[in-house]
C-alpha cells in the first residue's frame, strides 16, 4: 500500500439491501468448503479476490483490509475514515456532520450511525473492535470470513464481562 488519499465514502446501496446480501452470503458449511477450495488455488484465489475488490470498491469504497467490519458498521466502511478509526468517530466531526479532514464529505461514522440506527442495529456500534492484522491487506475478506477468521474481530462488553480481553486473536 502506498500512502493514498483516504476519504469518507458514502455507500452506494441502502443498508437494508446490504444486510439482505449478507444473509445470502452468511457463513455456512458450503461457503466454508468453497473458501478452502479457492484458497488452495492461487489463480482462482486471485480472480475471486479481484471480483470481491471490484464489487466492494464500487458499493462501499472498499480498500481491501481483508478483515471486513461492514456488517457491524451499518455497511459504511471505517477504513475510509482518514484516521481509519474502527471504534467510532473522532472528536473532530463538524457540527454539520462533516469530516475534519475533508469538510466536503460526511464523516463515515455519522453515516454508519444513521444507517445502523435506522436498521435497528445501533448496538453493533458498541462492539469493541480489535486492531486490524496488517498482513491481511489485499487478501479476500470473504474467504477469511467464511473460514471463521473474523470471529475475534469484535467483542461485546456487558455486566458479566465489563472488560473483555484484547488478546485471543492472532
Amino acid at each position: 500500500m502506498g500512502v493514498e488519499r483516504i476519504r469518507p465514502f458514502r455507500p452506494r446501496i441502502p443498508a437494508f439491501l446490504a444486510y439482505a446480501l449478507h444473509a445470502l452470503l452468511a457463513e455456512n458449511a458450503f461457503y466454508r468448503r468453497l473458501a478452502a477450495y479457492v484458497e488452495r488455488r492461487p489463480v482462482l484465489y486471485r480472480w475471486f479476490t479481484a471480483g470481491e475488490r471490484v464489487t466492494k470498491e464500487r458499493l462501499f469504497g472498499c480498500r481491501m483490509c481483508g478483515q471486513c467490519a461492514l456488517p457491524t458498521t451499518g455497511y459504511a466502511c471505517p477504513m475510509t475514515c482518514p484516521k481509519q478509526l474502527r471504534n467510532g468517530p473522532c472528536g473532530g466531526v463538524s457540527p454539520d456532520g462533516s469530516c475534519e479532514v475533508d469538510r466536503t464529505q460526511q464523516c463515515v461514522w455519522v453515516t454508519a450511525w444513521t444507517r445502523a440506527k435506522d436498521a435497528g442495529r445501533d448496538a453493533d456500534l458498541d462492539l469493541l473492535q480489535r486492531p486490524v492484522d496488517n498482513r491481511q491487506w489485499t487478501r479476500s475478506s470473504w474467504i477469511n470470513y467464511w473460514q471463521g477468521r473474523d470471529e475475534g474481530l469484535a467483542v461485546a462488553y456487558d455486566d458479566d464481562d465489563p472488560h473483555p480481553a484484547l488478546a485471543g486473536r492472532r
Partner: peptide, 21 residues
Amino acid sequence: ENPFAPPAELRARRLAKKVAA
C-alpha cells in the same frame, strides 16, 4: 471525548466503550 460533536446520541455510548476498554 467530545460531548458536542455529532452524532450526539453516540457520544456517551462511545465513552462507555472506552471505559470497557
